[in-house]
Amino acid sequence: MKMPQQFFINIGQKVFYFLYFVGGMVNLASQTIYLTFMPPYKKDRIMEQAKKAGFDSLPIVSLVSLFIGFIFALQTAYFMQRMGSEIYIASLVALALVRELGPVITALVVAGRVGAAITAELGSMQVTEQIDALETLATNPIKYLVVPRFVALSLMLPLLTLYADIIGIFGSYLICVYKLGISSGMYIHVTFDALLYKDLFTGLLKTVFFGMIIAFVSCFEGFNVEGGAEGVGQATTRSVVTSFILIIMCDCFFTAIFYFLFP
């Protein structure tokens, strides 16, 4: 008897939470962007977050993109050898990495590593009333906590992506030169011959927005933690999942825009 009723109530609640999330994100984003440009500017906190987001993420991003380079070279080699055009592996890898794989993989790794850490940190600060304490010390938590993370993530992600691109290309270079017998100079030439400025530009521009998404989602989830340690855990999961979904959606959106704007 009650089943259909409960079903609609559930849907209604989901819609309600979704709208709450959208509104909260917009609110957080607008306040953060406003406060980013308001003095005082505290460079120390930005540096600290930049180290956490950039320098500390470098090993894992390098490792992942190196293996992506290996895998991509081998997978394309499977087909390209049938066609007898192994040299185009270099162009394919370069384009795929610079336009798509580099930015997305970096963003996903950073969302999993840095985004989760931010949510857990802010979440436990919320649970232990540290956020309230900040406010009573006349410090805006958004200015103090979100702005440095926002600035650091949106500046560091493009740089990390550059590392990921070059290391991925290097991985594929190793496979092509030492396993498939393509000459080293030829590989490098074909790689950079295939790339255009717009490939690099669109790839890097996307990551600025990915960085913003990670910062906003993880801070938002962190601020909205309820219910102690368990709540922190749930919020961290939600933060990573939401970041992943939004990054992929945003990527699709940008790919479409760039496809039509810069054909």
Partner: peptide, 8 residues
């Protein structure tokens, strides 16, 4: 490196 190498 990218900027200098890319572009024909």
């Amino acid at each position: 490196i990218f900027v200098l190498s890319v572009g024909k």
